[in-house]
Amino acid sequence: MKIIGLIIVGLTGLLLIYATGDFPDWGDPASPANNYLSTRYIEKTMEDTSVPNIVTAVLADYRGFDTMFETTVIFSAGVVCFFLLRVFEKKTDEEGLLRHNATGITLRIKGVEKISYSTGEFDRIDNLWTPQDLIITTACRLLIPFIQLFALYVIAHGHYSPGGGFQGGVILGSSIILLAISHDLRTSLTRISEKGAGLLCAVGVFIYAGTGALCLLLGGNFLDYGALSKILPLDPVSARSFGILIVEVGVGIAVMGSMIWIYSNVSSAGRYREGL
């Protein structure tokens, strides 16, 4: 069976390599991809949307419908991970490990959820516990604000440089994931809870689709941001640029939420007790 599979895979690979011979050369000016739509985008993007980065304009404006459903795909990925993995259990008499900070003694007790940790006398620790390294926690705590700032820059500067909602959202989400890895899952859940992540996920998609619907209500086509100039003190060209920013923010929020949501579900096997 393995040999048959190998033969099929090999044959398909050879066919694919044979088919690449018909591709136009890389950067060939006579190739179909470079002839019909591209020229229009390159000539008209600045006039239409005043966005210097053509990729962003194509992604969020000319092909905005595609991107809306890409965002929906990310949202569905988060929801699917939730439905497949999440396990709800009663939290009443949960056993857990505590560390007494002054002596370093570890205790296993029942009902760890009910104890108040605000005094700093005890700390919750994971069963598969590796001592939290001071260097790692401090370095990550210092690094995370800068990562988040960079993510916001990537989202906001997508009009002028490579970047945009998807990349910025992933970087924002991974900053929270870094917090969960360097400390523990509970620390990251105090920053963005499970409900918060799911809600952010949905809100992002809602912002995107809502912007499109708003354009529809203002008399334009769906996702035709030029119509936003009726309620904003902007001319239609700047309104398109502004509309791109709004949907990029929506995409960023949705991607960030779903990344955190997927990570918490996968790393804690849906129990939300102990992470990676």
């Binding site: 992933v170 994931i177 997927i262 990570y263 996968v266 804690s268 992470g275």
Partner: peptide
């Protein structure tokens, strides 16, 4: 991010 997801899945 996907590497982190893979590592988390392997861990579990």
């Amino acid at each position: 991010v996907s590497t982190v997801f893979f590592v988390a899945a392997v861990f579990r």
